[in-house]
């Protein structure tokens, strides 16, 4: 049986009526979008009332070194055995490579053991930490009153929310990948193995000295929360401005190929991470 023009038109009208009703019936309920509002002049004016954290901040590495012995984390029994083995290997000249593959040092190890500088930027609703190399590239700390996300999406630096208590920035960080090491040196550190929670209180201890008071809760490798203060000192000379540092270039050397193109080629590294051979030009 053939459909006449009226029959086709009726079917089309019926379909047009049906499709939207099906679409409405199947559409999942969407949560209303939360908008990050544009900052107001008052928001920017409030930034000026915050303490002055401008300049380049360098870690006090000698204090990091000292705390390996003076303030060790309360490792659980299994973790303590692994750390003891790492110390023995380091002493024997075979240091364990805590940071490999140029992955981020991650939170909180960036704060704990970095050897590189950082700077801190204040904008409305946000504090941003920028590191010198991509081992410690970037921390975003939301100060706009939001909470942690309902659905966990772990990252190397986790999800950080902060607020100001006077001149102290209080930061709460969760959702850090379980592989992120809790490192006490470049040769001693263990994956946190999940459920890591870090609380920080960052403040100026002196005019050019910044303290990060950390409380680290790592239930799978520590017996109780670990408290430590990490010290950063300020430099202001323009010659010390932070420049780009790309970790992966450490595994490469600049060369020119047969076509005259500038390229990178791999160098040889030892299992402990130091460079052992560089291809000739």
């Amino acid at each position: 049986m053939k459909s006449g023009p009226i029959g086709i038109a009726s079917a089309a009208v019926f379909a047009m009526c049906l499709v939207p009703s099906i679409a409405v019936a199947q559409a999942p309920k969407k949560a209303p979008s939360v908008i990050n509002p544009p900052p107001t002049a008052q928001d920017w004016a409030d930034i000026a009332k915050l303490p002055d954290w401008s300049g380049v901040w360098n870690p006090k590495i000698s204090d990091q070194d000292a705390q390996v012995k003076t303030n060790p984390p309360p490792w659980n029994e299994e973790a303590a055995k692994k750390i003891a083995k790492m110390f023995a290997e380091e002493k024997a000249g075979r240091p364990f490579l805590v940071f490999s593959n140029c992955l981020p040092e991650a939170h909180p190890s960036w704060m704990l053991v970095t050897h590189n500088a950082m700077e801190v930027l204040f904008t409305p609703g946000r504090v941003t930490m920028l590191g010198e190399s991509d081992g410690n590239r970037l921390r975003r700390i939301y100060t706009d009153g939001r909470g942690h996300p309902e659905t966990s999406d772990p990252t190397f630096h986790g999800h950080s929310i902060g607020h100001w208590e006077g001149d102290t920035l209080v930061i709460d960080t969760t959702d850090i990948v379980p592989q992120a090491p809790l490192a006490i040196s470049e040769a001693a550190g263990l994956p946190n193995n999940g459920d890591l929670h870090v609380i920080e209180r960052i403040h100026l201890a002196e005019k050019d000295i910044l303290h990060d008071d950390l409380e680290i809760i790592a239930p799978h490798i520590l017996t109780k929360p670990w408290k430590t203060t990490r010290i950063f000192f300020r430099q202001r000379a323009r010659k010390f401005d932070i420049v780009e540092g790309v970790c992966a270039t450490g595994d490469l050397v600049e060369r020119v190929n047969a076509d005259g193109d500038h390229i990178f080629v791999p160098v040889q590294k030892s299992e402990w991470g130091h460079t052992t051979a560089i291809p000739a030009k």
Partner: peptide, 8 residues
């Protein structure tokens, strides 16, 4: 080649 970041 061993790919490495900061090392001891």
């Amino acid at each position: 080649s061993q790919v490495a970041a900061h090392h001891s």
